[in-house]
Design a protein around this nucleic acid. Structure first.
Length: 280
DNA sequence: CAGGTGAATCGTCACGCAGA
DNA sequence: TCTGCGTGACGATTCACCTG
């Protein structure tokens, strides 16, 4: 296949080399030392070791920002509001917030209340509260929700504690009595018992200690793997975002240092002119 | 217009590190 | 020691632009 060749000869500039070049550039401008020409001789293994030991972008940038005023800091912790619609923040403090593939937000509040909101809508209109009525619900804070992009019948499903499934209706028919009424044009949701056939890629969370058969163990392993992959996916996104921010910061720093360098050179020339006796 | 190429982005794996 | 997180590396996909 042609893309093998294609990918082998192409190096991702943003993800790999570009920030390294910028770092070198900053170092070259900042220090008056000779540049490190031996860089190119490092073999790939050594390079990998060096790269893997480099501190995180967050650390580097925060150190940078402490040195240089005006350099923005990368948030140590994502602020609660980031990426979360305001209508959720105004409600009861949720223990967990999840975003579906369609951009809707599911918040599990203390006491098992499920809040579903649509980022496109504003205010309370975009929020629905579903109160869990099953008595066997797990304690607060132990909520596990998994969602499927779309089930086979075109509805969207969310898996909530108590082995129940929140299903988004295809048409906006009224929800059962155990649900709060939907408002406006918001889609409605039903809490159902899970069907036997789960959507692809979604595995029901099993309570620990209830695993016996090898099949259950395999399912648990699969679930853990899915969870790990999902977390890693999000981590990779966040890491790339930080890296972009870091590269931007380096670029601006390069620009500032170049201007400073130019000014200093001009100043030096001026002083030279003043100090050196004229031969004429 | 089809095919090539560069660039951007994403998902996954592997690995090191820090904290529990 | 274990576990979770951050990140480099790699392969795959998509898109825009260029060229014959």
């Amino acid at each position: 296949m042609w893309w093998h060749q294609h990918n082998l000869c192409f190096r991702h500039p943003i993800e790999e080399d570009y920030s390294g070049e910028l770092e070198k550039k900053v170092a070259t401008i900042t220090e008056t030392d000779e540049s490190t020409e031996s860089e190119g001789v490092i073999d790939s293994h050594k390079r990998r070791e060096i790269l893997s030991r480099r501190p995180s972008y967050r650390k580097i940038l925060n150190e940078l920002s402490s040195d240089v005023p005006g350099v923005p800091k990368i948030e140590e912790e994502k602020s609660e509001g980031e990426g979360t619609p305001p209508n959720i923040a105004t409600m009861a403090v949720p223990t967990s917030i999840y975003q579906t593939s369609t951009g809707q937000y599911i918040a599990i509040a203390q006491g098992g209340t499920i809040q579903i909101s649509n980022p496109g809508s504003d205010g309370v209109q975009g929020l629905q509260a579903l109160t869990m009525t099953n008595s066997g619900a797990p304690p607060p804070g132990a909520a596990i929700v998994q969602y499927a992009a779309q089930s086979a019948d075109g509805t969207q499903q969310f898996f909530v504690p108590g082995s129940q499934v929140v299903v988004q209706d295809e048409e906006t028919e009224l929800a059962p009595s155990h649900m709060a009424a939907a408002t406006g044009d918001m889609p409605t949701y039903q809490i159902r018992a899970p069907t036997t056939a789960l959507p692809q890629g979604v595995v029901m969370a099993a309570s620990p200690g209830s695993l016996h058969s090898p099949q259950q163990l395999a399912e648990e392993a699969t679930r853990k793997r899915e969870l790990r992959l999902m977390k890693n996916r999000e981590a990779a996104k966040e890491c790339r975002r930080r890296k972009k921010e870091y590269v931007k910061c380096l670029e601006s720093r390069v620009a500032v240092l170049e201007v400073q360098n130019k000014k200093l050179i001009e100043e030096l020339e001026t002083l030279k002119d003043i100090c050196s006796p004229k031969t004429d």
